[in-house]
């Protein structure tokens, strides 16, 4: 098979990269025993109750952070699948047929109350998300509550007249930003645990102080901005925020596509 010079150069770069990757994987496997801090898991289990008052959050985001990461991407996969099945062409901006209106069925009371109720639901969802590490709740329920608020106004006012003018692009961006927050917070843990322990752990809970040793926070600002709880949850609230963005955008996108899907019947 004849290949051009450009393809040959690309093949050489590919081969060298593969060789380097294989060498690094082999070396990591060879020195794997030295990379483990013995007793780490035991101590962590012992002190996990001091990380955040909500032990479920600790288990969900700290012990099983990879699991929650997988759930986040399952949601993205579901949104992509729904987009492909029901909303084909919507993201590319093809000419749409008439969007079904549901405003004729709505009564005056529904129209009067649903938008303020949607706003209050959005605020309640944000409260659930931001208090996820100290109260019952978290990113997934809070995002679902916000998406419920959006869906309420869409059902009452219709897609065209709804006060929440979410566009496809905005929701896709929001969902992606949520997933990126999760991934980059994991990288932050990798960098900081590599700096302090010599070994990098992805999704390491940076900022946690289970031994109550460090009383001064970042840059010495902790005295001014004191935390109401005696413990530090680390990066768990930020993971909650990322999951919240992802879930609110993903569920709203699914709802929007399912509403739009009627027009193509």
């Amino acid at each position: 098979m004849k290949t051009s010079e450009f393809e040959q150069g690309r093949n050489i770069i590919m081969g060298v990269s593969l060789f380097l990757f294989s060498f690094l994987v082999l070396r990591t496997m060879y020195i794997f025993g030295n990379s483990i801090i013995p007793g780490m898991s035991h101590l962590y289990n012992l002190y996990s109750g001091n990380i955040a008052p909500n032990i479920i959050t600790v288990i969900l985001f700290d012990f099983r952070g990879y699991d929650t990461l997988g759930e986040t991407f399952i949601l993205i996969t579901a949104v992509i699948t729904t987009t492909m099945v029901f909303g084909w062409g919507s993201l590319k901006g093809y000419k749409k047929k008439e969007i079904p209106q549901m405003t004729e069925k709505s009564t005056v009371i529904q129209k009067l109350i649903s938008f303020p109720m949607s706003m209050l639901l959005v605020a309640f969802g944000v409260t659930v998300i931001l208090g996820g590490h100290i109260t019952p709740g978290g990113g997934f329920p809070g995002g679902s509550v916000i998406a419920t608020g959006y869906f309420l106004s869409v059902v009452i006012y219709g897609l065209k007249k709804t006060p929440f003018r979410f566009t496809h692009k905005f929701l896709v961006n929001l969902s992606t930003i949520g997933a990126l927050i999760f991934l980059l917070t994991g990288v932050v843990g990798l960098v900081f645990s590599a700096y302090y322990h010599g070994t990098g752990y992805y999704l390491y809970n940076t900022g946690v102080d289970p031994y109550q040793i460090i009383n001064v926070g970042a840059f010495g600002w902790d005295n001014i901005l004191d935390y109401p709880d005696p413990t530090h949850p680390g990066v768990l609230p930020y993971l909650n925020i990322g999951v919240g963005f992802n879930v609110l955008a993903g569920l709203s996108l699914i709802a929007m596509f399912l509403m739009e899907a009627k027009k193509d019947e």
Binding site: T206, G217, A218, Y227, V235
Partner: peptide
């Protein structure tokens, strides 16, 4: 811990 991200939540 490094207490790197105590500012915020």
């Amino acid at each position: 811990s490094s207490e790197a991200i105590t500012l915020g939540l």
